[in-house]
Simulated assay, not measured.
Amino acid sequence: MNTLYPAIFEPQEPSGFHVQFVDMENVFTCGETIEECLFNAAEVLTGMMECFLENGTDIPRPSENVEGAYYIAPEVKVQSALLVRWARGDRSLADIARAIDSSWPVAQRLEDPHHWPTLKQLDKAAAALGKKLVLSLE
């Protein structure tokens, strides 16, 4: 599963760029330089994903192979919460709690974008969901 969201950077007059996320029309930002845009885009994406996760809003999967796009990732806490939510699908949190041999609040925190789950918790949750935890540094 992928949490890199494509964003298009459009040059603006007299300077700077407007940044629009391809998969979410209400998520956008701007900046004077590409570096500033990348930073701002990660910040706004993280904030919006936190809101979506907290409110139970459906979050679109990121598009792939968008020509000319920059791919932006939210903060790692948000990525882990998002991946657990997507992998869980229609299974209840109680099912996940039983599968990882833990309590319902522990299972619930796995989808909390403000919680730092341990690798052990993520690995157990992935296994319970029929997935494999894979780490990557980019």
Results as ranks from 00 to 15, higher is better:
92 S>Y: 08
92 S>G: 12
93 L>M: 15
93 L>G: 11
94 A>W: 02
94 A>Q: 15
95 D>H: 10
95 D>Q: 14
96 I>R: 06
96 I>M: 15
97 A>T: 04
97 A>I: 09
98 R>C: 03
100 I>A: 00
100 I>D: 01
100 I>V: 15
100 I>C: 00
101 D>R: 12
101 D>C: 03
101 D>W: 00
103 S>M: 08
103 S>G: 08
104 W>Y: 13
104 W>A: 07
105 P>T: 09
105 P>M: 09
106 V>Q: 12
106 V>F: 00
107 A>G: 10
109 R>Y: 10
109 R>P: 04
109 R>C: 11
110 L>E: 03
111 E>Y: 09
111 E>W: 07
111 E>V: 14
111 E>D: 09
112 D>K: 02
113 P>R: 08
114 H>Y: 15
114 H>D: 09
114 H>Q: 08
115 H>M: 01
115 H>C: 09
116 W>E: 15
116 W>G: 02
116 W>T: 15
117 P>F: 02
118 T>A: 07
119 L>F: 07
119 L>I: 09
119 L>C: 04
120 K>V: 07
120 K>N: 15
121 Q>L: 14
121 Q>A: 13
122 L>E: 15
123 D>H: 01
124 K>S: 12
124 K>E: 12
125 A>M: 10
125 A>K: 02
126 A>Y: 04
126 A>W: 01
126 A>D: 05
127 A>S: 11
127 A>V: 08
128 A>E: 06
129 L>I: 02
129 L>W: 02
129 L>D: 03
130 G>I: 10
130 G>T: 06
